[in-house]
C-alpha cells in the first residue's frame, strides 16, 4: 500500500514542479524600480528630465570633482577624464572618457550612479547633465554653448563610438572543436 502510493504520487509531484509557478514575491512598485540606479541605455532610454550647460558644469566640477580628478580633470586620486584621443593604436594608449568611451550616455549613467566617489547619488539630474557637458566640452566633443538633456546627450558622437568589436576568442593557440 505504502509503496504503491509513492509510485502514484511521484509523477504528480514531478509534473507540479514542471508546470506550476512558485508564485513567490510581490509585484515590484514603480517607486522601487525608480530607486534602482536608473540605468541609462545608449539610445538615451531612462534619461530623466532636466538639462545642464557647460558653464554650470564647470562649477559642479570645481565643487564636487576637482579635488579628486584635478582642477583640469587631468587625474589625481581619481583617473584622468580628458586627453588621449588618437593614442589607442599606439604603444602607450591613454584611455579616458574622451578617447575611449563609446557613448556619452555611459558618462551620464556612471557619474549618476557612482560619483562623487565618496558621496554617490549626491547630484541631481540637472547637475549630472551639466558636469557631463563640461567633461565632454573639455574633451572637445561638444561646443561650449551646447546644452545637454535627454534629447541631445544620446546624439553626441563620441570619438571612439566605433571602437568596440565582438569577442573573437578562441583566437590564440589550438582552437577547440566547434560545438555541434
Amino acid at each position: 500500500m505504502f509503496s504503491l502510493s509513492v509510485i502514484v504520487l511521484l509523477p504528480a509531484v514531478a509534473l507540479a514542479a514542471q508546470q506550476e509557478k512558485y508564485s513567490v514575491g510581490r509585484p515590484a512598485t514603480v517607486e522601487q524600480i525608480r530607486g534602482l540606479g536608473a540605468a541609462i541605455a545608449p539610445d538615451g532610454g531612462g534619461l530623466p528630465e532636466g538639462s545642464g550647460t557647460v558653464a554650470a558644469g564647470r562649477e559642479v566640477f570645481a565643487a564636487r570633482c576637482a579635488k579628486c580628478h584635478g582642477e583640469k580633470a587631468a587625474g589625481d586620486i581619481g583617473p584622468a577624464l580628458v586627453g588621449g584621443q588618437g593614442t589607442l593604436a599606439t604603444v602607450k594608449p591613454f584611455k579616458t572618457v574622451g578617447s575611449f568611451w563609446p557613448h556619452a550616455t555611459t558618462v551620464w549613467d556612471y557619474v549618476n550612479r557612482a560619483m562623487p566617489f565618496n558621496e554617490p547619488g549626491l547630484l541631481k539630474p540637472p547637475e549630472v547633465y551639466a558636469v557631463v557637458a563640461y567633461i565632454l566640452s573639455l574633451n572637445g566633443i561638444i561646443g561650449k554653448d551646447q546644452i545637454m538633456d535627454a534629447k541631445t546627450l544620446p546624439k553626441v558622437i563620441m570619438p571612439n563610438r566605433d571602437g568596440f568589436v565582438a569577442d573573437p576568442r578562441p583566437d590564440v593557440g589550438v582552437k577547440p572543436a566547434k560545438k555541434k
Binding site: 589607442l88 593604436a89 594608449p93 584611455k95 575611449f100 555611459t106 568589436v165 565582438a166 569577442d167 576568442r169
Partner: peptide, 16 residues
C-alpha cells in the same frame, strides 16, 4: 566599456 574590454594593437577594443 571603460573597463574589462581588451584593447588590441589596431586600437579596437574587444567588448563582452
Amino acid at each position: 566599456t571603460s573597463k574589462y574590454s581588451d584593447l588590441m594593437p589596431d586600437g579596437k577594443a574587444r567588448i563582452f
